[in-house]
């Protein structure tokens, strides 16, 4: 029930970004991916979430375990908070909408349409969605963007609860999350060096 990645290489738009990346996450642990903007944090998360094929290397994940949350929250503005969560609960076949609403203290806004929420509230609703999915592995891309200090603390608390319950979290961010116990992985050293001309492999090399 752990995540293991060996010698992973991934690219964005044909340009290799990361190379020879290995990591592993045990249940109950969180891993924070750090690195300058555009170094491939998002690309790595999307590759692990299965949205994007890896160039090389192997990824072993427990099946049906991933809950992915991207920059955009995927909220329907004309649906209310409860309707949004109810939809995702039905998709993931799990319940707990009210618990999630309460946990992210959105109870007061439960019936307000998502378009009338502030950026921070929308972000909290996006995180509430994670609770609703009931998936052990959380893959979060910049989860605390546009959150105030109180909400960041709330988020850290929710993640701690998730880890205590045996869950795992992979978080790509360059803002401090207030999760001291989380491991940190800097993606800098795994940056793909300029491919030597003529070497086969990824798409563009064939043309260099």
């Amino acid at each position: 029930m752990e995540i293991r990645v060996e010698n992973l290489a991934c690219a964005r738009g044909g340009v290799p970004l990361l190379d020879a990346l290995s990591l592993s996450v045990q249940p109950g642990q969180a891993l924070i991916l750090r690195g300058p903007n555009g170094c491939g944090k998002t690309t790595l998360l999307r590759t692990l979430a299965g949205l994007q094929p890896a160039l090389a290397g192997s990824i072993s994940l427990p099946p049906d375990a991933i809950a992915y949350a991207a920059h955009a929250d995927g909220l329907k503005s004309t649906l209310s908070v409860r309707e949004n969560l109810a939809f995702w609960a039905a998709v993931y076949g799990s319940g707990g909408v009210d618990a999630a609403v309460a946990r992210m203290n959105l109870s007061a806004l439960a019936d307000r349409a998502a378009q009338n929420l502030s950026a921070g509230q929308k972000r909290r609703l996006g995180l509430a969605r994670l609770l609703v999915t009931g998936r052990p592995v959380w893959m979060l891309d910049e989860p605390t963007v546009s959150l105030d200090a109180a909400s960041v603390a709330l988020f850290a608390d929710v993640v701690r609860g998730h880890l205590a319950a045996g869950g795992m979290a992979l978080i790509a961010t360059h803002i401090d999350l207030g999760l001291p116990e989380a491991q940190v992985l800097d993606l800098g050293p795994f940056r793909a060096r300029l491919p030597a001309p003529g070497r086969g492999g990824s798409f563009d090399e064939a043309f260099l």
Binding site: G13, G14, V15, L194, P195, D204, E205, F207, L208
Partner: peptide, 17 residues
């Protein structure tokens, strides 16, 4: 087309460097 692709790859690599 191959030349155009090669040019695009070179420019991409240039930007990446």
């Amino acid at each position: 087309e191959i030349r155009a692709r090669r040019m695009k790859a070179l420019v991409a690599r240039e930007r990446m460097a």
